[in-house]
């Protein structure tokens, strides 16, 4: 077994609601292999986003450990997150938004502009470098957020439903582009989604989480059925796609019911 890129051990997260303790995550243990694309699906409120934010260092776990392995001598940042909400700075143009992480790491202006140009070209933002976000569509803004994360060349990429706010057609196009960019860079990705379809078409493995408190219910291997590089249309028309969908949904259905009972 290769050394994992990300190792979570017995991760717990408890928060206080008034004077009641609520467990968001209970005993999450997980290894993600280098270069692996792992999706996380689960009912609303199961702690998917919390888990991602803990890995991102934006929240702390109540107990347990998060380890992101660095290659020896690497100075790359540990992670970069692509958020669900609009997260590009409205006061920075496309180029400066994409180069934000590089600026934070101390790269000079000329250097970071040079570093960011190839990734801007790759996500289809060439010619829009000087545009401000309010001049762009929602899909274009999310491309900027993705470019910002890739430009920083992190050890692992964290994506929290990055396409959830987009319309269906834009989403399909961006999924295909994400796959293309990812296949070139082979970053380790943790991808939170509520879309079973998205999880199957993009991932190597799909982690199904239980209703709150979030636990690892099952991890389903997709990669052996759909090797890389992948064609999204071919994946979706394959009979195996339907099998995966049925299996994940049957796992998820009970949890969604349980979650809706809890919140009712």
């Amino acid at each position: 077994m290769v050394e994992p890129k990300l190792r979570l051990r017995d991760l717990n997260r408890r928060f206080m609601l008034r004077d009641r303790a609520v467990d968001a995550l209970a005993g999450i243990s997980l290894d993600v292999a280098p270069g692996e694309f792992l999706s996380i699906v689960g009912p609303s409120g199961c702690g998917k986003t919390t888990m991602l934010r803990i890995v991102a260092g934006l929240e702390t776990a109540t107990s347990g450990t998060v380890e992101i392995m660095r290659e020896p001598g690497s100075t790359r940042p540990l992670n970069a997150m692509v958020f669900q909400q609009e997260s590009v700075f409205p006061w920075k143009n496309v180029r400066d938004n994409a180069a934000f992480g590089l600026k934070a790491r101390g790269f000079g202006k000329r250097e970071r502009y040079e570093m960011v140009q190839p990734i801007l070209d790759k996500v289809g933002l060439r010619g829009f470098e000087d545009a401000l976000p309010h001049q762009l569509s929602g899909g274009m803004k999310q491309r900027v957020a993705i470019a910002r994360a890739f430009a920083n060349d992190p050890e692992i990429m964290l994506m929290d439903e990055p396409f959830a706010a987009l319309d269906e057609q834009t989403k399909l196009i961006l999924q295909a582009e994400l796959l293309r960019i990812w296949e070139e860079s082979r970053k380790t990705v943790m991808y939170v989604t509520h879309s079973i379809d998205e999880a199957i078409t993009l991932s190597d493995r799909v982690l199904v989480m239980s209703a709150r408190p979030g636990r690892v219910k099952e991890i389903i291997d997709i990669k052996s059925a759909f090797p890389r590089p992948r064609d999204i249309a071919a994946v979706k028309s394959s009979p195996k796609y339907g099998e995966f969908f049925g299996r994940i949904w049957s796992l998820l259905r009970d949890e969604v019911m349980a979650a809706s009972l809890v919140s009712a």
Binding site: M81, S87, F100
Partner: peptide
């Protein structure tokens, strides 16, 4: 909050949080 999260996620220095996030925001 999201802009502060981005700043923290990319480990922006305190000075950069002033000049690139808080001031324009």
């Amino acid at each position: 909050r999201i802009y502060l999260d981005v700043g923290r996620n990319y480990h922006a220095s305190r000075l950069m949080m002033f000049t690139d996030v808080a001031l324009p925001g």
